[in-house]
Design a protein around this nucleic acid. Structure first.
Lengths: 335, 335
DNA sequence: GACTATTGGGTAATCGATCACCCAAGGAGG
DNA sequence: CCTCCTTGGGTGATCGATTACCCAATAGTC
């Protein structure tokens, strides 16, 4: 069941040298030593199947080559796996591993952070499933190096968030360039992303000298939830019946777009000929499988992960700062 | 940026007792000690913000309270986050943390396992994104305690897999009970799950004395991939045009079902009145948002995770064994 | 040939927690 | 009063790797 652990002293004994020489041969690139000795030691280590013991090294150094990522459910969310990818890629190139711990409801942030600290990670990030503000207790603000997809309420920690407003502006401009003029927005209500996107939506339309056809909530509850009953179908029907039939519908996310597709299909309208559809998220499973494939603004999740790791592992820490990362337009066939 | 690490000796000094007493007070429940001393030590530890140093404990014990999970992309797959949930829940109750490392393409299994072994985990599991056979090199078969969602080719390691055949039988029986008789199966070709499900599909129909209407591949390529061009729409059209119009379509997964929905909508057919649709996976994002919500067989991912952890942490290891875990029918409105 | 660098490698301390073992004080029993 | 046992807690070794420091041998310099 468990591999018998080989230690440096096992190798040292077998090679007839001291432990320190073995350590130097395997890890210290600069250690003075004949090439002969180094090769012999390496060969024996290989033969014995030696694997470095990070726990032992960690005692001495004071930390393990880990970067802790505390999240409010991140690893169980298909959404933000991209964040982990970004983190992981950057971590590996620095010889670090990502240690993800999710923050279960009912558990205080402090206790999760303590849980992570037991492993003495090199740095710790906090990641949120959806863009929001997180209040970090005083004593913890110093323990977290960066906030991903969320902002520390008091601005004491560097935060990486999507540029919601800019993303909304970009997709609206894209619709305008495509000649669309009567644009409705079925938005996610009650969440920060929705509020910011609405600002961008309105700004971009104003810029083009156009009035929005409407900003409608995707669900009834003020707090967006996957389980809240959807209003999408009725909104679409209402929009189609109104005098000003839209020639484009912007959706709060790809799942909303999926419902819009269904409603438009029932009404016998073709996408994009009769009406364009665009959205946010680029949840590939959905966006690429819809017919026609959905044009959508991809969230900068992976970029946030990558940048987060760079900030965490930077030699000299920057002062707390808010980074807004740009969305990325994924053109498919729905516009 | 980093919390100053408080050690047992800091507490000991402050409390005027020895390090061992502090250790006993905080961790050893059975250590002989006056309640008074124990309380005083705990109070000081709390005050100083002491957090156990697992690295130091790990040197002594020979392992860290971690269970390594090596996967071929698991953490980046929305599919199998449920596996991690199952693992994580069971791990926490045992005071362990899950340490997930994904096996990138181009990297040998051996090197990933070595990467994990550096942290001296208590046990290691291997998890696959989709049900398949995995060949483990000899020297590694002993290092992996359990295979999740895959089987070790030579059967040397306990494996947990979904009971594909049984799951298919169950959903077909359900369709039969619902009075459906002309059933087609748009299956995922070229993968183990597809092959096994087809066996269950045929067996259940035979049991009911009914001929299958057809088993059709969802994509052209023999190896299933998300990027392979879909054949679903044309299959549905062909089925509808044929003399024997199906009254139920079983789909290889929820994404296939999504395409079937779209094709049926174009043909003006209503679900489930004109035709029933059912599938595998229960990818909630999709299944619950389709209209009507999709009846689908949920994979036992979480159960596999939970059982895996139990096996890994069991006192006395069982001999290698193949566990087939049952699917779970999620009844919605499409049948 | 004496003297200094340089090379190769050993010694021993160290990190923080744990653990086997020892010691002292005090009460119980004879 | 003496011995034995229990209670409370200290001492020192240990885990595996790293590292500051030291020593011996060789090569190079005048």
């Amino acid at each position: 069941m468990r591999i018998v652990a080989v230690s440096l002293s096992d190798i040292a004994e077998r090679a007839g040298v001291s432990v320190k020489t073995v350590s130097g041969a395997l890890h210290g690139g600069s250690a003075r030593m004949s090439d002969d000795t180094r090769q012999k030691v390496k060969a024996i280590a290989e033969e014995l199947g030696y694997v470095t013991n990070f726990a032992a090294r960690g005692v001495r150094q004071g930390w393990l080559p880990l970067v802790g990522v505390v999240s409010d459910g991140l690893i169980t969310s298909p959404f933000a796996t991209e964040i982990v990818r970004g983190l992981d890629g950057a971590a590996r190139s620095a010889g670090m591993a990502v240690f993800a711990v999710n923050h279960r409801s009912g558990q205080s942030i402090g206790s999760v952070l303590d849980e992570v600290q037991q492993f003495r990670p090199r740095a710790v990030a906090y990641a949120a499933m959806y863009h929001k503000d997180v209040a970090l207790p005083d004593r913890l603000a110093g323990a977290v190096g960066v906030m991903i997809n969320c902002r520390e309420a008091a601005g004491r920690v560097t935060a990486l968030v999507p540029d919601e407003e800019g993303g909304a502006r970009e997709i609206v401009r894209y619709l305008l360039v495509a000649g669309r003029r009567r644009i409705a927005f079925i938005n996610l209500p009650g969440i920060l992303a929705g509020t910011l996107r609405e600002m961008g939506f309105r700004a971009a339309l104003e810029e083009g000298g156009i009035d929005p056809l409407g900003v409608l909530p995707a669900v009834r509850r003020s707090v967006y939830s996957d389980r809240a009953p959807s209003l999408v179908a009725s909104h679409v029907e209402a929009l189609l019946k109104s005098g000003q039939r839209p020639d484009a519908i912007l959706c709060g996310n790809d799942r909303v777009a999926m419902e819009v597709y269904a409603a438009l299909a029932r009404a016998g309208l073709r996408i994009p000929d009769d009406i364009a559809v665009a959205s946010f998220d680029n949840q590939v499973e959905i966006a690429s499988r819809l017919d026609p494939p959905l044009t959508t603004m991809a969230l900068p999740h992976r970029a946030m992960g990558r940048l987060a790791m760079e900030i965490l592992l930077a030699e000299q820490p920057e002062p707390p700062h808010l980074h807004k990362l740009p969305f990325h337009l994924v053109e498919r066939a729905s516009v």
